[in-house]
Each structure stands twice: as C-alpha cells, then as structure tokens.
C-alpha cells in the first residue's frame, strides 16, 4: 500500500489596503477632443489587471463606454502620486481615487450637456453606451462625443476631474498594538485533497476547492485568474519552493530555475472556486481585493491533508519528499 489519500482544510481572512495607512494614490481624468477619457496615473500593472480594472471603474463612474477609457499609467511626470502596487492596496486605493476623479469629470460633462439640452444637470442620466439623456425622456438626448466637442469648441469648458485617495496614518501602539490596520477584510476557505506515495515521499495534490469572499468582484475573469495562479503558487510553496533547502545552512542554494523547485505544469490539479460577494462599504463599488491572499488558504490546507493522509504532524514548509520520508521513518521507529 504505497499510496495514501487525505483531505485537509483551512480558512483565512486577509487585510486589504496598506497596513498603517498614509499611502496616497491619485488619478486624473480628462476627456480628449478625440472622444476618449484618459485616466492618468503612476500605478503599476504587474499582470494582475490594474489597467483593466481601473478602466472598468472609470467607465462605470463616468457613465461612458469602456472602450472610450484609456488608462495612461506608469509615468511620474504625467500621473499623480501612487504609493505602489503591493499590500492588496491597488484596487482599493487607486479604485477610490479613480472614482473621485471620474465623478468630478462626469459632473463637468453633465454641466455642458445641460447647457446643450437647456435642462438642469441634476435631471441628466448616462446610459453607459455613449449617450446622455433627460431622466425618463430618452429622446431628449445628446451623445457624450458631442458633449465633449461642445465643451471644447462652444463653451470653453474642460471636462476633467481629480482624485486622490488617502487613508490617514494609523501607527500601531507599541504596547498594546492598537491600530486601524486595514480598510476591510477578505475571506477564503480551501479544501485540499492529496495522494502521498509513501515509498517516494511524493505528494500529488488531487484537487483544491475553495470559496472566496472578496467583496464585489470588479472583474470575475481576472479574479479567477488570481485564484488559479495563487493555487499553483501555493502548491510550490508547500511542496518544494525555497532558496534555502537545508535551512538554516546556506548549502545547496539554487542558482537557476532548474534547481529552484517550482511546481511543474503536470502537477497542477483541478481548481474549483465559488465566489461570495459581501460588498465592502469602503471599497470602490464594494470591491475588496484578492491578489495577495490566494496562496494563504491552500498552503495549510495541503499540509493538513498530508498529515491527514499519513497521520503525521508535519508543521514546516516546504514538505519535500525527503521531509515526508524522514517523518514516516520517525513514525515507524516510534511505533516499534
């Protein structure tokens, strides 16, 4: 009987937003005479989809079509301050800054449309498809593009807005630790199923099933991408990844990918996930954040599953085959 199966679970929460506060991020929005809305920022997209998510937030808050929104980011001359991509802060901080800027630009846009239609700006609505109309009277309408043109050439008005989101500093009390450490919490729970080869010590993760609660999802496709990518990273962290395989010695430190164990494509199991949405009042359109937490519940779930399969007590990662074989030897010795 060389193969043993086990299951394990883990549940986590994750603090969203830069710990201790004091981390401003800004955005500037303006309409171009070519018909686009440019959002200038100096935030960084690492591949998680910052530009996509900010475009969605800007389009929604402006009430204009998504494809007219340009995200111009990554330039410290043209974009306002950003405290960086990290700490699961970007969707929350930059998202709130973009909303503030977009709201101001929207109100400038509606002021121009109101003059064009000779109504009060308060009576105007956008359809998100490129039109502005009087609430309840769809025929009484003007397009966003015409409004921008009229603002520029007829009324001499800039359609633009500013946003800067800043959470005040909240240092931790050195004695008690009292502080406002985060802006909201996201949650996750994972069940892992594993099969362990007791001869080779190798672990196969058979499945990872998780539920996530991350507030409102701005973009479910990108959220899923983070969860699947994080599940893979978690398997690597749990089973093989380290720059110090014989910690605390510095021996056998890897110099390249061939010797730095990352999980191979063939070791990737099915990943199932379900999303719950408890919109956060502090987040942009109720969003929390997801990028950083995605390895946190799978790692302990997998180790708990290994312990469950083998009736072991492993408490350190990574759980390499060597670790498992030594633990099984110790278990056998103890049983004698």
């Amino acid at each position: 009987m060389a193969k043993k199966r086990g299951t394990g679970m883990a549940a986590v929460s994750y603090p969203i937003g830069m710990h201790l506060g004091g981390d401003p991020t800004g955005a500037l929005v303006h309409a171009t005479s070519g018909g686009n809305f440019v959002v200038a920022m100096s935030s960084v997209d690492l591949g998680q989809g910052l530009k996509t998510v900010m475009a969605q937030i800007a389009a929604e808050a402006l009430g204009v079509p998504l494809d007219t929104v340009i995200i111009d980011t990554g330039d410290t001359d043209t974009g306002p301050h950003c405290s960086g991509t990290g700490a699961s802060r970007t969707t929350h901080r930059a998202g709130n800054a973009v909303i503030a800027a977009a709201k101001e630009a929207r109100s400038a846009m509606l002021d121009v449309a109101a003059e064009m239609l000779e109504v009060s700006a308060a009576d105007l609505e956008t359809d998100g498809k490129g039109n502005i109309h009087v609430a309840g009277v769809e025929e009484k309408s003007v397009s966003v593009a015409e409004t921008v043109q009229a603002g520029t050439f007829q009324f001499g008005k800039t359609i633009a807005g500013r946003g800067l989101f800043l959470v005040p500093k909240s240092p931790q009390d050195p004695e008690t630790g009292e502080s406002d450490p985060h802006s909201t919490q996201a949650h996750a729970c994972t069940v892992a199923e594993v099969e362990v080869d007791t001869e080779s010590g190798e672990v196969e993760v058979l499945s990872l099933k998780s539920a996530y609660e991350i507030g409102r999802q701005i973009n479910p496709e990108l959220v899923k991408g983070q969860i699947v990518g994080g599940a893979w990273m978690a398997i690597g962290h749990t089973l093989c990844e380290t720059t110090a395989p014989y910690y605390p010695t510095t021996e056998h430190a890897p110099l390249d990918f061939l010797n730095y164990g990352m999980t191979g494509v063939a070791e990737m199991p099915e990943v199932e996930c379900e999303l719950l949405e408890f919109p956060s009042p502090s987040g942009p359109f109720g969003a929390k954040g997801v990028g950083e937490m995605v390895a946190n519940s799978p790692i302990p779930a997998i180790v708990n599953a290994i312990n469950n399969a083998l009736d072991l007590d492993i408490s350190d990662i990574p759980v390499t085959p060597e670790v498992i074989l030594r633990a099984l030897d110790a278990q056998a010795a103890g049983a004698d």
């Binding site: 591949g47 991408g225 699947v228 990518g229 994080g230 599940a231 893979w232 990273m233 990918f257 990352m262 191979g264 494509v265 063939a266 990737m268 990943v271």
Partner: peptide, 22 residues
Amino acid sequence: RDDIMEAISGNLCRCTGYLPII
C-alpha cells in the same frame, strides 16, 4: 492533455497556474 503539458513543460509561467494555457 498530456501532450500539451509535455510540450509547454519548458515554458515557465509564474502568474497563471497553467490551467488556462492548457
């Protein structure tokens, strides 16, 4: 599916977890 995994086994991706690529 195995052929695909074999074919991309020399291509590392740190972001996606490979499933969408497969």
